[in-house]
Design a binder for these strands. Structure first.
Lengths: 221, 221
DNA sequence: TTGTGTACCGACCGAACATTCGGTTAGCGT
DNA sequence: ACGCTAACCGAATGTTCGGTCGGTACACAA
């Protein structure tokens, strides 16, 4: 057996050492599998191939891990709202863009967004996350309102209700979508925007305004 | 002060005694507020106005409470699928009916359904619930497939994907809908079915087939 | 009066929990 | 050779958890 003078197994270069990011990446997956509350630091340590106490070398505690994860998810989501709006496009086009890009971000940052959406407002970290989600909601509702005023989006439903249905559908993707499962993000976001904007009964090619209203059909990746 | 010979406060008839159902009703609300895992039996006892040990007089444990709750939710949901299909209606009409009735059931049994949808498959109770949810999903996907074959529902999207989007939207209601908040179930289910079947850009009155396709517009309650 | 069943309680228990502490190890600059 | 630091560890600490136990209080029936 290959042993050191101390008799303990050689660790040297079996795996690169952890830093905050690589540790968080693993932690978030475990949190999603077992649920944040049900995941013990012991569970986490086992999965990392570390001892419990070593985790505290990288982060202050369990809650900081949660904070880092939901922070990352919120940043990615807000970035979508702030993407350059090309000044002259309609609110409807922007809304469609925000929905599509949100699906893409959700897919790209799936474990982080999943964790964010499951937060229940117990600790301070969680309450801050919920506050940010409400802010996101408000800005989308604003966009819906302007789109309705433009006339290319139905105005018989309250804008706030529309934005809740919209992002209810988008957010529900975390419950089943797995990027490695064969369904591409492009096909997914096409299907989702098609159903939400044109309806289940809509003919595939139908559109409701000038072609410019649908500027960002995704290319297959 | 009104005291008994024992010097302890009078309990008699201050509140009706609990049975399994009334206890469950409170428990489910607390589970949803704090999350099942984060809710201790102590939390529960405090909210019930009981001691921890008294809870065990009514139920075998925490997990039985969860089981009772998700069982009740699943029963209510499956009942919708088994409602008499009037033999001659189209699959599209039945699909629309199932979506609308699911919204109604979700609203009527909100705390129970909420708990069901948050179950993560850790214990046996939770795994059984998830198995039942998959069965529900399968039956809806079947319905979508038949509707697509009928031609009144778009067939450029996989039936299973459609059913996931449909029930993703429906299920997302538990994240924000509160029956006491002024929005009636009728308005909600009208809005939801309108967006999903006719699209955000759809004109309010448009329909895609014969009027019989939309047989169950809800009356205001 | 005595017995029975339902509803309830305080004191307690072992296990699991997040976190802390006092270290060791290995690589690197000097 | 020396000291420094990042990365890591085993063994504890105090706390909280779900659950148990041996009772009491009281309505009601015989």
């Amino acid at each position: 057996m290959n042993t050191r003078p101390t008799g303990r197994p050689v660790r040297h270069r079996e795996r690169p050492p952890y830093d905050r990011d690589s540790l968080l990446e693993v932690a978030v997956v475990v949190f999603n599998e077992r649920g944040y509350d049900r995941t013990s630091m012991e569970d986490l340590a086992r999965r990392l191939g570390l001892s419990k106490s070593s985790i505290y070398h990288h982060v202050a505690g369990k809650e900081e891990l949660l904070g880092l994860a939901v922070g990352r998810a919120m940043d990615a989501l807000f970035a979508v709202l702030d993407e350059d709006p090309a000044a002259d496009t309609t609110a409807t086009a922007r809304l469609r863009h925000v929905v599509r890009r949100s699906v893409e971000v959700l897919a790209a940052e799936l474990p982080y967004v999943t964790l964010l959406l499951r937060v229940r407002g117990n600790s301070g970290v969680e309450r801050r996350a919920q506050e940010q989600r409400r802010e996101f909601d408000r800005r989308v509702a604003e966009l819906v309102e302007r789109a309705a005023t433009e006339g290319s989006v139905r105005d018989d439903i309250e804008p706030h209700l529309v934005s809740r249905l919209l992002f209810g559908t988008v957010n529900s993707l975390v419950e089943w979508y797995r990027p490695e499962g064969g369904l591409s993000v492009a096909v997914l976001s096409d299907a989702l925007t098609a159903v939400l904007f044109d309806g289940l009964t809509g003919r595939p090619a139908r559109r409701s305004g000038p072609a410019a209203d649908i500027p960002d059909r995704a290319a297959p990746n």
